[in-house]
Design a protein around this nucleic acid. Structure first.
Lengths: 194, 194
DNA sequence: TAGATTGTTAATCGATTAACAATC
DNA sequence: TAGATTGTTAATCGATTAACAATC
């Protein structure tokens, strides 16, 4: 979250930030000091923190200062949405292929990509290094695909299917549970008073 | 998360759950007992918790046992994706309209919906009650639209734009930050060892 | 009755907040 | 030097875990 605000500040040519950082991010001043301390405390007293320095530091911490190549499995609307938006919203993450099971989809265009068959995954991956697989396919197919992708060496999974993937522990999975988020909205709306 | 697993268990015709609930959800047995206790402790000793009863209870707690009507603002891939998937993935949430700024989009079909102009929002909302607005539009437009929607009475916002919406405090906003989730994946992959 | 499992309180742990010294 | 702000430790708070009594 800090990263998003730092990029915004930098875009506005603000090079130092201190007290206003708290109200901007909605954190307490104490929380920010503690976090900056844990990040390695690179501020200057009575001046604040250097925006570009802090941004770079967080970039490095997150590991997004190095490139990540991704493939998208599932060329539905969600997959297409990510294929379109990601490259220019998230520097360092590049989509290098889009795949689908469905013969109707194969061969169609998604942005600059021609959708390939999941049958061609193995040969594709052996030729192009892939860091992350984006799973935007039906829940029923996700586990089998993830297993197959793990077998050919992929270790990072960005999973949009509402299932808990079972993979060896050197795999990293991050789930996006849109259902949870909508359910939380309902919950908060019901309990506004408290 | 419990809710998702309970639906799955019910689908498999499993009517009681106890110890296996922990491994299924990845929680400790202690955590589950504590949570069930806070939910109102409706289990039977030496038998476990009733799956349908617990599912219903959580549904009520989340407020998803009553209907929610939604409109989608932004008919890009993400908006389309939600328009398509939501109705049959999340019972009780129904999309009743899709809107867009872009004249190219207006009049096109998204599932069963014809995309309407955002100019027609006010008159549409005065005729159809809307609980939740889904903001799948560019960050630059999100704040203005949210303000407009608030003015005509909408209080629930499911926001996919990477901005912090500023609205009166009787509005409820839940943000979906896909960027964060991808950045976390990168972070975890970098720090597998620790 | 014995076994299994839940209900409930207490103990532990980690994260947030407060306080104040250090320093630009 | 005075003012502002960060660095760092201690105190507080809340959430998770442990323990064991209650009961089906």
């Amino acid at each position: 979250m800090y990263y998003r605000h730092l990029k915004q500040l930098e875009h506005n040519k603000k090079w130092f930030v201190s007290s206003e950082f708290a109200e901007l991010t909605g954190q307490s001043a104490s929380q920010i000091r503690q976090d900056m301390f844990l990040f390695g405390g690179k501020g200057k007293q009575s001046l604040g923190y250097s925006v570009p320095e802090l941004r770079q530091h967080i970039e490095h911490l997150l590991g997004i200062d190095r490139p990540h190549s991704m493939i998208i499995i599932g060329a539905g609307n969600l997959g297409c949405s990510i294929a379109h938006c990601l490259p220019y919203q998230q520097k360092g993450f590049s989509v290098i292929g889009v795949f689908d099971f469905n013969p109707c989809k194969i061969g169609s265009k998604v942005g600059d990509f021609t959708v390939k068959s999941t049958d061609d995954l193995d040969s594709f991956i052996s030729q192009h290094p892939v860091d992350i697989a984006v799973l935007t396919l039906p829940a029923s197919d996700a586990q089998a695909l993830a297993k197959q992708l793990y077998a050919v060496g992929i270790r990072g999974f960005w999973n949009f299917a509402p299932v808990d993937l079972q993979l060896a522990e050197d795999a990293t999975v991050v789930d996006v549970h849109l259902e949870y988020s909508l359910e939380m909205l309902s919950y908060y709306m019901c309990h506004m008073d408290t």
